[in-house]
């Protein structure tokens, strides 16, 4: 039994069919990506999981329990960092814990030991505007994982970064993930990113989104920070072809 599983999930919003019988699963400690064209409804799956949109059809189970409404199982990281500009970094990092009702002192005590690993030690009293894009994204990731939720939901976390920073952040992220093994669901439209980071990849069709392919990525880690191997190229090519066939080009 998988840790998180979606079975035959349907969703329509405002009369538009968004999700069409989506079934997917994530095991504990597994890194799974949802790859699809822009506007396919990838992020909508996250909105279902975080309770922003009610489930209309199908079932979602997490840790063997059916999902209903407001869940405490998921930590969400949006595409833009969404740091509060008027809060210092340390107070942004404790936001999720604060919402859970944990006193500020205890929240800080949980965040502080992690600052070094995220390269934010020297910046905890800075305001977000004083940080570079990469650092802000690292802060957003730390804010996500420190909530101690079972599953990390990452919505194109590197999509707003410039190309060079994105590569650096992906390599850094892979490194962090290898030591922590967070159960992670990543939404992306970047084929290379999906192949570099994932254990498994689901490919979605354009709206209404269906799962049109599922692919394992049995490549050794670390994959980033070294020349990509031929096997990775082959998987990337296969994924791209699947995606391009769908969009009709």
């Amino acid at each position: 039994m998988s840790f998180l599983s979606l079975h035959d999930v349907d969703l329509s919003l405002g009369g538009t069919r968004i999700l069409d019988a989506i079934s997917l699963h994530v095991d504990k400690g597994e890194f799974v990506s949802i790859l699809g064209p822009s506007g396919a409804g990838k992020s909508t799956i996250f909105r279902l999981l975080t309770g922003a949109v009610p489930l209309q059809g199908g079932t979602i189970t997490c840790a063997g329990q059916p999902l209903h409404g407001q869940e405490a199982s998921f930590a969400f990281m949006p595409q833009r960092d969404a740091l509060l500009p008027w809060r210092r970094i340390i107070d942004n990092l404790t936001l999720g814990l604060e919402v859970q009702g944990i006193p500020r002192k205890d929240a800080r005590a949980r965040v502080t030991p992690l600052l070094a690993d995220f390269g934010l030690e020297a910046f905890s009293t800075h305001y977000p505007a004083q940080l570079s894009g990469g650092m802000r994204q690292r802060a957003a990731l730390l804010r996500t994982v420190v909530q101690g939720r079972a599953v990390q939901l990452l919505d194109e976390p590197f999509g707003a970064l410039d190309a060079l920073t994105r590569l650096q952040m992906q390599a850094w992220f892979e490194d962090r993930w290898r030591t922590s093994r967070w159960t992670t669901l990543l939404v992306t439209h970047d084929v290379r990113e999906a192949v570099a980071l994932s254990d498994r990849i689901y490919v979605l069709s354009p709206r209404p989104a269906r799962v049109i392919a599922e692919m394992s990525v049995p490549l050794p880690r670390p994959r980033l920070g070294r020349p990509p191997c031929a096997a990775a190229h082959a998987i990337e090519a296969q994924l791209l072809e699947t995606l391009l066939q769908q969009t009709g080009n």
Partner: peptide, 21 residues
Amino acid sequence: DPEIENLMRAMGASRMQVFRV
């Protein structure tokens, strides 16, 4: 910023918390 509000709701924040924070 609607993304900040979405984020807070995903964290399980109440309407009052969203207002205050």
